[in-house]
Write a protein that binds this DNA or RNA. Structure first.
Lengths: 347, 347
DNA sequence: CCTACAGTCGTAAACGTTTACGGGATGCGT
DNA sequence: ACGCATCCCGTAAACGTTTACGACTGTAGG
């Protein structure tokens, strides 16, 4: 069936009444409503969303931007699918739908986002992997599209975000290693342009200095947060003259490559080198020796993200009392065997 | 900036000219076009997609339906992100965008799909995980929405699909095991309502019978295709009185749980029980002993899916010569250690 | 009998685009 | 000076909805 007009003609009533009947408006005879619903079902009529959202100015759809580069795919470990279920649980309460927007790897994420919000196919957006300076945030702020970010940024003063507790993780990881006698502790991180790359290393540096351990820039290994990056990180570690006794990985996935490279040189993780990971990565759960790491619930994160977003949308604002526009997301340490040894004092 | 009307007023030219200028239509003065583009850029104007697609009747967006249930998330291992990059490579040629539609776990996929195509936010759809009887296929056929499915189905005569080569995999897996003396070969599969659950077991049965090995229904283990399912499968295998010497897993991920359960009983995969996996699952790549399995390129699959879909869309049909509306996707055997032992003849 | 009102329904405007159509200006050839 | 083509632009219709408004019944109350 084409449009509401054909449906109205078929029923021999006016188009307005059909619309009211379908949308549950009050002033329509129950008998008429029944007929309309029956006919719509029979003819398979469903309202065209373009017309509808043109008229109403909203789409009832929330967008979640993700990256689909080959690297991101290898890297991802269904982080997004994980938060998706939490998000949908929140959105379902308001009959909102979620759409994932995968940005092509060869396109500028900001241009892509601009195109997508221009399409006005979503009422609000969720972005992640924020850069220290992230033009997407300016774009969304200026376009007055409600949004929430996974990750902080220096851009655009005050916007809603949730970020992982890098400070806490760095502090606890360093504490754990230092208490076992480690003094030369390496760390892996992506480029400092990525916000998390900057914050994590900075927290690590402070945690070291609080304990009187001097910060050695050569122990900061800038590699991709991937299995491949882990391999390379191990490689670079082995080239250092004063080899570290511990390493903190910013992503658990890296442990897979790291372990492999270590094994190649006969170095046993958890005996010759302490390893601590960060963020739950299903793929890394099966390493031997098991990895000590910081984990969290992606589902809960999704819930929090969804509620924070709704609190920022005019239509739902009053339902979600000011829960704070910023959240530092806590992680829980899951102790494994990969850092279960102590360093004897050398001096 | 609100709409094209305000932009036109600001420029003191007509709304029609502005539209033509923005859309690169020929009959507009280059100087005017320059002014329009500059003003649009300055005021941040972008065309409202609702109005546009209402007028043109198309959205230039392709939808990819995925499931976001907790189970699917655990199960997924970024299969979809993998094909996504291939899909986008094809779609980018035609300035098409890809949208992922995650179906909430508590909603009927068919209802969800109906709602989404009703929204007319996509011009075409890609679905996967087809059931033997899949109402989504009828729905899309009847609504005349171009689509392509990952997986065959009994539904609706002739529709475009790509499916994995279950027959070939079952045949080669059985051959490989039988040639090493195995006679009692178990297999895991999901419910036979899922198309793949039916086809895989059927192929396995035929492969057995071609070699004169009788089919034993008790060796077909119906469990979830997940890590948890693998654990349970091992459990059930151990309960069988005449224990099999080999097992074929329909999803590699299951090997993780299976290994764990076997270890608990002191059974060593690759020595006491031969294991062969199916479909590339990054998480399962790091098992000890390494898993023998059948793999493929998700990227290439994405390319093929995209091209098959375009061949079914009126606007692009002539560009993609009839490449066949059905493809059986081949997989490559990657030999590991998990099935590297032979059975001595007992009788 | 008149008024008021509730219950229904039809009419038409509005949402923001694109585009077919026509018309005015300009330039050119005759 | 005239015809004609070219270039550019404005006008208005159309896409499919929703919804404010008004109109038409029938009923009850005065």
């Amino acid at each position: 069936m084409r449009g509401i007009r054909q449906l109205a003609e078929h029923l021999e009533i006016s188009i307005g009444t059909v619309s009211r009947a379908l949308n549950g408006k009050p002033d329509v005879n129950e008998e008429t409503r029944r007929r309309v619903l029956a006919a719509a079902e029979e003819l398979g009529y469903v309202a065209n969303q373009s017309g509808r959202s043109l008229r109403q100015g909203e789409t009832k759809v929330i967008g979640l931007m993700i990256e689909s580069s080959q690297e991101a795919v290898e890297n991802a470990d269904n982080f997004f699918l994980g938060v998706t279920s939490g998000l949908q649980h929140v959105f379902a309460r308001h009959k909102l739908d979620l759409l994932m927007l995968p940005c092509p790897s060869d396109e500028d994420p900001c241009e892509y986002l601009k195109r997508m919000v221009a399409r006005r196919v979503v009422d609000a957006m969720i972005i992640s992997n924020t850069q220290r300076i992230d033009r997407r945030i300016d774009l969304l702020s200026r376009a007055r599209i409600p949004f929430v970010a996974v990750g902080r940024s220096l851009s655009a003063g005050n916007f809603p975000w949730i970020d992982l507790d890098f400070e806490g993780v760095a502090e606890r990881a360093v504490e754990r290693l230092a208490s076992r006698g480690h003094r030369r502790i390496a760390i892996t991180a992506p480029s400092s342009e990525v916000n998390l790359g900057y914050v994590f290393v900075e927290s690590y540096r402070q945690a070291l200095e609080r304990r009187g351990i001097s910060f050695d820039p050569s122990l900061v290994i800038r590699v991709k947060s991937s299995e491949q990056g882990g391999y390379q990180a191990a490689h670079e570690l082995l080239l250092l003259e004063d080899r570290p006794t511990a390493v903190i990985l910013i992503y658990e996935l890296m442990a897979i490559g790291l372990y492999r490279r270590l094994m190649e040189s006969g170095i046993v993780p958890g005996r010759d080198l302490a390893v601590i990971g960060f963020r739950d990565a299903p793929r890394a759960r099966f390493l031997q020796p098991s990895l000590s790491c910081f984990r969290m619930s992606l589902y809960d994160l999704g819930i929090a993200l969804g509620e924070m977003l709704l609190a920022d949308m005019p239509a739902y604002r009053e339902l979600y009392p000011d829960s704070g526009r910023n959240i530092i997301w806590p992680l829980e340490l899951v102790a494994g065997e990969s850092d279960a040894f102590e360093i004897k004092a050398m001096v």
